[in-house]
Design a binder for these strands. Sequence first.
DNA 1: GGCAGACTGGATCGTCAAGTCCAGAACACG
DNA 2: CGTGTTCTGGACTTGACGATCCAGTCTGCC
Lengths: 204, 204
Amino acid sequence: MAAAHEPAGLTAKGARTRARIVDAAVALVQRQGVAETTVGEVKNSAGVSSSQLYHYFADKGALVQAVVERQAELIVATQERAGMGTLEGLQVWRDGVVAHAREVAGVGGCPLGHLVGQLAETDENARAELAEGFRRWAATLRQALHDLHRAGHLASGVDPDSLGDTLLATLQGGLLLAQVERDATPLETALDTLLALAVRDGAR
Amino acid sequence: MAAAHEPAGLTAKGARTRARIVDAAVALVQRQGVAETTVGEVKNSAGVSSSQLYHYFADKGALVQAVVERQAELIVATQERAGMGTLEGLQVWRDGVVAHAREVAGVGGCPLGHLVGQLAETDENARAELAEGFRRWAATLRQALHDLHRAGHLASGVDPDSLGDTLLATLQGGLLLAQVERDATPLETALDTLLALAVRDGAR
DNA sequence: GGCAGACTGGATCGTCAAGTCCAGAACACG
DNA sequence: CGTGTTCTGGACTTGACGATCCAGTCTGCC
């Protein structure tokens, strides 16, 4: 009975159904937030019935948990694929982030960050999962900045670890401002100002 | 009928009741978010009845709008009172922000910022009001940095306006990370790293 | 002091979303 | 095959929350 809500022990078909539900929920939550997304909408969007959904998830909280895990996975994977450990990579990463924000006019903000305001104070499990996601994200940023540091691309006296945390904070804040202003300019300004101060030569 | 929901045309007693409702709502929203705060809780907390609440506000959306306005007012007023246009003022501001975050272990995040994730995509009026609040906040930061710039306290080549926006973004992101980690360290690191790069001499 | 409009109390309603239940179909595995 | 488990469908229950209504009281002003 308890095991029914765990990912393990599913048939291939079951796993596919579960994934379909999570994907639908991720999209809906990204668009309209956790509270505004009903399990009814998720059911419709995924094309499943009540009993199916509650077969895979104990309750809405468990579904939200799965959404957070998935979103964190996606972000970290994207980040790792970016390869921003070189000046060119950093530039590409910066351009990608800004271009995406510009495309959507800031709507949605950061897929992970925008969940914090909705869940941190009301769902301790989700909060912990989000924290874990951000820690992993920060770790990849730090790694990249260590590479840049070793190659002599950081301003003197800058600690790569600290700069990694700062870059993540500035990115999150920039995305938040872009979201609320419906304009990517604040994000662009923040990122470029920080990078201009911390990075030697390249990066814009 | 329409005028009944406007602040104008209230007696002193009415204005007090209305303020009591808004204050209660501000506190509850700050603690548990918009969606998790029911008008029932607001009624209890403010000690008013349904009809009183709906006498002053057309619906929950109008109440939320008032909460956003009030929160923005409070923040900007605090910010203006901080007087961070000197090195000492900047240091005091930085210490105050970090100390507060440390006291509450990040809980609640930024009173204004944490509303963005909850409202930006679901309530266009609230989003616009939030954007206005952030614009005013950014304006006071820019002003302070202009003062510092004039006194020669900014690193060469730094534009005070850009740095103001960057500082706001880094602050927001730092508060968000502190909120999700339940630890003020990321905020402290982000703020100090940015200020160390951008400010000559002082500020830690 | 009286009247118009501001203000108050609390019972009540309608809606809607979360979660349950049961019966039956599909599937894995021997 | 066939049998036990996994999976599926959809109607149903329950409860909470936003919102309404109406009957009345207070307040400021002429």
